[in-house]
Design a binder for these strands. Structure first.
Lengths: 207, 207
DNA sequence: GTCTATAGCTGGATAGAC
DNA sequence: GTCTATCCAGCTATAGAC
């Protein structure tokens, strides 16, 4: 109750920042991720460009706030409790969530997973949540006996490839989404075959 | 020898267009695909922007010429004779070529396979070569007993996912490239298992 | 902190002399 | 066909009044 004045002032400031970020999401939904302009953003937020510069140092600073928010959403989305304790069911549920997350908001997907904006690099703090979310995926993979770097890399390539084809070549459809279950089968069959000889594989990496 | 005047005039014109496109490739190699500007392009081509407009109707028209050239290169690259007649070896060679083609020129890859430029759609003529190249891949897959749409889609997702992860997360390295052989094994094992029951799968598509 | 106004720049595209 | 010169729109970012 009796926090110092600086605290609620900070809270107000965060609320204003959040409102601008909210308007920014609406803007990129309409104009595309790269089409974000500060003029349009200011108009949507019911303010002006100089005011925005009181809250964000630059346009990329806004992208960074959006990235951090998206990464947090991604982490929460994947970390929600899994209904089944069966490892394979959990992996399938993870893919379903990954698809649902990516296809439900394409600018968000582009910002998080593609490198489409010229000068933008997410700050370490914003990047942290994305890394944590990937760690959750690694856990689910580990419950399925998949632990090696090569296998995890193959898994990420497979899932992102499916999502990317879906978004690029059949937006709004299910042409690649429907292959998710088949993909899990294919991947796990292969992982089981190769994990027994993982040490020899590792030795073969640099001949 | 005695062609009508309109013919060599047309030839000169094509040569000038080719020179501009050549300069455009150099520009995107330096500035990024989306960073192409007509001022810079004109400077590189040793001319001025109005002259460029004598040869191309718009900036997207230049992108289209680049797309058509890249698609032709892609088709030629994949269609070169395959050293081995063994189906699996041909498929592996196809992946190797796909990786080599994509990673050796990233702006070209982005132009051909990603939808990164706002208002640009390739013209049907430019798109044709890309379609032909994909048909070649389907042939190699068919020689491996892979014919169904679902399986072909899974293959494209897998290979593009690998390339995309390689370019995005380990540019210049081999972290995902080295997984190509494993991926072929994984895919073919799975394809063999499912192709025998393809009719039942097809029936299950719309329950 | 919020505004008006504008600087300063870069973009695509053109008019018109030669 | 090639140039100079320029238009006009858009952008990010800031100065300065209130």
């Amino acid at each position: 109750m009796s926090y110092p004045a600086a605290d609620w002032r900070e809270t107000r400031r965060e609320a204003a920042r959040a409102a601008i970020v909210e308007a920014a999401w609406a803007a990129v939904e309409d104009e595309g991720l790269a089409g974000l302009s500060l003029r349009d953003l200011a108009k949507r937020a019911g303010t002006t460009t100089p005011t925005i510069y009181k809250y964000f140092a630059s346009k990329n600073d806004i992208y960074d706030a959006m990235f951090g928010q998206a990464a947090a959403e991604f982490e929460a989305f994947l970390a929600a409790p899994y209904p089944s304790e069966q490892p394979r069911a959990a992996l399938e549920e993870g893919v379903r969530r990954f698809f649902a997350f990516c296809t439900s908001d394409i600018p968000r997907y582009q910002l998080l997973f593609q490198r489409t904006i010229p000068g933008f690099e997410p700050s370490p703090e914003s990047f942290a949540a994305a890394v944590r979310a990937l760690a959750g995926t690694r856990q689910v993979l580990a419950r399925n006996g998949v632990t090696g770097t090569r296998q995890v890399d193959l898994w990420t390539a497979l899932t992102t490839g499916l999502v990317d084809q879906q978004i690029s070549n059949d937006p709004g459809g299910r042409r690649w989404t429907r292959l998710a279950e088949d993909s899990v089968t294919m991947f796990l069959d292969h992982a089981r075959k190769t994990s027994s000889s993982s040490s020899s594989r590792r030795r073969r990496q640099r001949p």
